[in-house]
Simulated scan of single mutants.
Amino acid sequence: MPVQYNSSSPGTWRYSGNQMKRWRTKANVTREELGAASNYSPDTIKAMEQGVRMPTARALDTADELCHADGLLSAAKDYVKREPFPARAQDFMLYEQQAISLWWYEVALVPGLLQTEAYMRALFGNSTPPPEEETVEERVAARTARQEVLTRRPPVACSFMLYEAVLRGPQVDKEQLVHLLDSGQRNNVVIQVLPYERAVPAALSGPMVLLETSDHERFALSDGQQVSQLSSDPKLVSVHGERLSMIRAVALGPGESASFIERMVNDCER
């Protein structure tokens, strides 16, 4: 049966938060009291207890002391870790590491596998609400590690189609453009540009990815600002495949695309 993947908070967050709530309730400690003792607002404590936010070491240690848990809550620190990817993307990241082929179309942003560190930091650092510097560095490290897909052995066949708006984004600089050219030199990587004047309706409906694993399972990813859908439904996979084929048919070829990007690099030097 086709599977629809909906990510949620990590299980360790939910379990540790639930245990913190149980111990707090048993000890007749209010959220306000725990929040004041650990320097968090009651709403933040509530989010931790519900597994929406990661229970921090400070909150766990404070709860352990206030609730007389004898180290049982503090022990959760060894198991609760900050996830490197947003919850909605974790299923896709798992299958990406098993991929033998990737077909990727982007409308506005450089695909994560082709981003420079400077581009990553610009994206992560300017998100809303502003993340902590530690969070930005964790996400940059995680995304950089993902790029191993491009150099893996045996090679993963990667085809990227980029709408022209991707190349003209505010975070795109000469370094990023050159990095795209260098990436396109790999024998397992194809990069094609879709200029504005060649856009077809199929190209304006948002980004998407088709992925095939080593077990020959095929998945389709539809990605939005706050919602992602990863599906193995053959019908949805087929629709994505048809749409990608239409875009590829009107996009510039790899050689023409490289020349297009090279002209942009030259414009940056003027």
Rank of each mutant, 00 (worst) to 15 (best):
A57D: 09
V193P: 01
T44F: 11
N28C: 08
E137S: 01
A122W: 00
S245M: 11
R153W: 09
P42T: 07
Y79D: 12
R243P: 00
V80F: 02
V265C: 07
F260I: 01
R198W: 03
V110G: 06
M20T: 10
D61H: 06
V140P: 01
P170L: 04
P154L: 10
P154T: 14
G125D: 07
E33S: 15
D43T: 10
P84T: 09
T151F: 07
N126A: 15
S101A: 11
G206D: 02
R14V: 13
E32T: 14
P154Q: 12
S101V: 10
P234T: 05
A69K: 01
T213P: 02
D182F: 04
D78H: 12
Q147L: 13
L244Q: 00
G11E: 13
G112M: 02
T144H: 04
T44I: 09
P170A: 04
P254D: 04
Y40G: 03
D215M: 14
S228H: 05
R53P: 03
G224P: 04
F124S: 04
K26E: 15
G255K: 12
E32N: 08
D215V: 10
E32Q: 15
A258G: 00
Q98F: 11
E138W: 06
A57E: 14
V107M: 03
P111F: 01
G241P: 02
T128F: 12
A141Q: 13
K81M: 07
L244C: 06
N6D: 12
G184Y: 00
P131G: 03
E269A: 12
Y105V: 12
T30V: 15
I261R: 00
C158N: 10
H216W: 15
R22W: 05
E117S: 02
R121Y: 02
D43A: 13
E138T: 06
P130M: 08
D61R: 12
G184R: 00
L204M: 13
R139N: 07
M161A: 03
E49C: 05
L150R: 08
V200M: 03
Q229D: 08
T56I: 07
A145Y: 08
D215F: 14
V250F: 12
L236T: 13
R153C: 09
M54F: 05
A203Y: 03
Y79S: 10
M54A: 09
R198E: 10
E134D: 15
V3W: 09
W103I: 03
M20R: 03
R121F: 00
Y163G: 01
E217Y: 13
R248V: 01
Q147W: 06
S74C: 01
L72P: 01
P111H: 00
R82G: 00
S9H: 09
R263I: 01
R88I: 14
K235A: 10
T56F: 02
E148S: 14
V189I: 14
Y15M: 10
P130V: 00
E96N: 14
R146V: 08
Q98S: 12
G11V: 02
T62K: 01
K174S: 09
R270T: 05
